[in-house]
């Protein structure tokens, strides 16, 4: 295999370069750095800050996994991927995991041979229109011009929605979200559609947010989550349970502030198992006992990551909604650590 690298790279543009054997964990540990695929820049989810350091909700998942596996939350090589390149990058082994607002769908999971390791954000597609149109429901949009970001599940949902309601529309496919917003503000389209979290975020940045309304219809389920390649279940388990550790930490009240104190041992056995003072969960994953402690310490528990990057106090200003813990009426739920 080694010898073929040069020729293979010539033949298939680096298809072979990182032929990832089954043991992604060994590769990552040998390399000392984890390659994590992220977006090319979505505020709140993944974007480099003024110092060039990647920040965001998806980035935090990468950092937590790196902290668990390598003991260093900064040992991550962020690989910006576009909607087009993300799956090839993961399948070819260029990246070890993908945390990029990617909707968990059947065909991506089964046909493209990926493994979604959980959901870190429950989203749904919605519509935004100028309030002056007087539209109150998406069913009234017959004949409207709709701006969509191309290459996403949104355009499929859009086609399905209009077809099932037996109304027509004129799609205006746009490469990036910011361009679509410009066209929408210029009146080149009547409707802008994307995930409701993004609609809310972008509306907040409009010059006059009150002139625009987000219609009540949610036309799709968009569970967004990190994914890895099929066939390396050990690595998949690590990513899955790192995400679950962040979620469980919030449920159990483990925060980045009190984690040192709690990791000394508490009278709650699940916290003890999570933080490694009891049981051998880390060993079962092929890691050490404190893997989850490091993952949580990297950026805080799920709630802290949410509030710090996209929560109500940030510019994005998203409410927890569906993404509240199950104990608070949301969908965020982790299987037990035992």
């Amino acid at each position: 295999m080694k010898k073929s690298v040069l020729f293979g790279a010539l033949a298939a543009a680096g298809m072979t370069a990182g032929v990832a054997g089954a043991a992604t964990l060994d590769d990552v540990q040998a390399r000392g750095v984890m390659n994590c695929g992220v977006t090319t820049g979505v505020p709140g989810f993944a974007e480099p800050d003024a110092n060039g350091v990647w920040q965001g909700f998806d980035v935090a998942v990468c950092r937590a996994v790196a902290a668990a596996v390598l003991g260093d939350s900064t040992a991550v090589e962020f690989v910006p991927t576009t909607g087009k390149t993300r799956f090839t990058a993961l399948a070819s082994g260029e990246i070890d995991m993908l945390a990029r607002n990617t909707t968990w769908t059947f065909s991506r999971d089964v046909d493209l041979k990926f493994e979604f390791t959980g959901v870190n954000y429950y989203d749904g597609q919605g519509f935004m229109v100028p309030a002056s149109l007087g539209v109150t429901s998406a069913a009234e949009l017959d004949g409207a011009t709709v701006c969509i970001q191309t290459g996403t599940t949104t355009e499929l949902n859009l086609a399905d929605f209009f077809r099932s309601n037996n109304i027509t529309y004129e799609p205006v496919p746009i490469e990036t979200g910011s361009e679509a917003v410009q066209l929408f503000l210029a009146g080149s389209c009547d409707v802008y559609t994307t995930d409701r979290s993004a609609l809310a975020a972008q509306r907040a940045n409009f010059p006059a947010p009150d002139d625009f309304v987000v219609l009540p219809e949610v036309v799709s389920k968009e569970p967004l989550g990190p994914l890895v390649r099929h066939g390396d279940n050990e690595w998949g388990d690590i990513v899955r349970w790192t995400l679950n550790a962040l979620i469980t930490a919030e449920e159990l009240g483990v925060t980045s502030d009190n984690i040192e104190e709690l990791s000394a041992g508490t009278n709650n056995p699940e916290i003890n198992r999570l933080l490694g003072s009891e049981g051998t969960l880390g060993e079962m994953l092929g890691l050490d006992a404190e893997w989850a402690k490091r993952a949580i310490a990297a950026g805080g528990n799920y709630g802290e990551v949410f509030e710090g990057n996209i929560g109500a106090a940030t510019n994005i200003g998203l409410a927890r909604g569906l993404n509240a813990q199950w104990t608070d009426g949301g969908l965020i739920y982790s299987p037990p650590f035992r």
Binding site: S4, F7, G8, L10, A11, A12, M15, T16, V19, A20, A91, S92, G93, K113, R229, H230, G231
Partner: peptide
Amino acid sequence: LISNLFANLAANG
């Protein structure tokens, strides 16, 4: 090169 391409594509699923 071609057989290598197919072998590696298959190896990557």
